[in-house]
């Protein structure tokens, strides 16, 4: 089955499980973040009543922590192929990936730059994925130890708090950037369709993910020959 729609307008980008996993993850993240604020500093203490008190808030944080961990299992069970492909992508760094960062600031600022052709994920998205995974690992591992301190030595538990905090600081910057680039910046806005409907504008794919587009065309040719 071709990934490209019959009218040659759209191309399939993300599978249903990937989309579900992304949004469960995103929702959990945002709720974790909001519930973390009053725990983070007194400045946000006014939020406690909104959650029904400090105790409920801590339970909310734990519930969304479970939701935050869930997506990886959704992918493992329902779409391991996409998961493997994602890992392969984000660890593949070539010349065009490095060059991306040279052109990127101009692209963001002016909306036009000579960016070398990009893979299925552009270098920025690869970096975003890596940083997101690193932060998530930090937050999840430290969070689990903080959740169940009775199974760990006290010295270790004590170190999990700064690690949780560093994870939080890093991911703040990463996620704000990510959300901005996916809904805030005019040029990448078409990408949001990919995370909702699963397909993106073929023209957009050609312009933003040239190497992926070329691969798609190759595949088309082959399947046409075979069929």
């Amino acid at each position: 089955m071709s990934k490209i729609s019959k009218d040659r307008k759209y191309v399939k980008r993300f599978s249903k499980p990937v989309i579900v996993a992304h949004w469960v993850n995103a929702l959990a993240f945002i709720m974790l973040y909001i519930s973390a604020l009053p725990m983070y500093t007194e400045f946000f203490d006014w939020m406690y009543p909104l959650f029904g008190g400090p105790e409920v808030l801590r339970t909310v944080h734990r519930v969304f922590a479970v939701l935050f961990i869930l997506p990886i299992f959704i992918l493992l069970i329902f779409d391991p192929k996409s998961l493997v492909a994602w890992f392969k992508q984000i660890f593949s760094w070539k010349k065009h990936d490095i060059q991306f960062f040279g052109a990127f600031p101009k692209e963001v600022l002016t909306g036009h730059a000579d960016v070398p052709k990009q893979d299925f994920l552009n270098a920025g998205e690869k970096l975003n994925s890596l940083l997101t995974i690193a932060c998530a690992l930090m937050l999840i591992c430290s969070g689990l130890v903080m959740w169940f301190p009775e199974f760990f030595p006290r010295g270790l538990v004590m170190y999990m708090y700064p690690i949780h905090n560093i994870g939080l600081g890093l991911c703040t910057a990463v996620i704000i950037g990510h959300i901005y680039l996916s809904i805030g910046h005019p040029n990448s806005r078409p990408s949001i369709r990919g995370m909702i409907k699963g397909d993106v504008d073929l023209e957009y794919a050609k312009a933003h993910h040239g190497r992926w587009y070329d691969e798609l065309m190759e595949e088309e040719k082959k399947s046409q020959k075979a069929g």
């Binding site: 983070y40 700064p162 905090n165 560093i166 600081g169 890093l170 703040t172 910057a173 704000i176 805030g184």
Partner: peptide, 16 residues
């Protein structure tokens, strides 16, 4: 960690 986190939050918000 905590001051750095607050700084990053502020910086990211400014960039946006």
């Amino acid at each position: 960690a905590q001051p750095a986190g607050k700084f990053l939050f502020g910086a990211a918000a400014m960039v946006v």
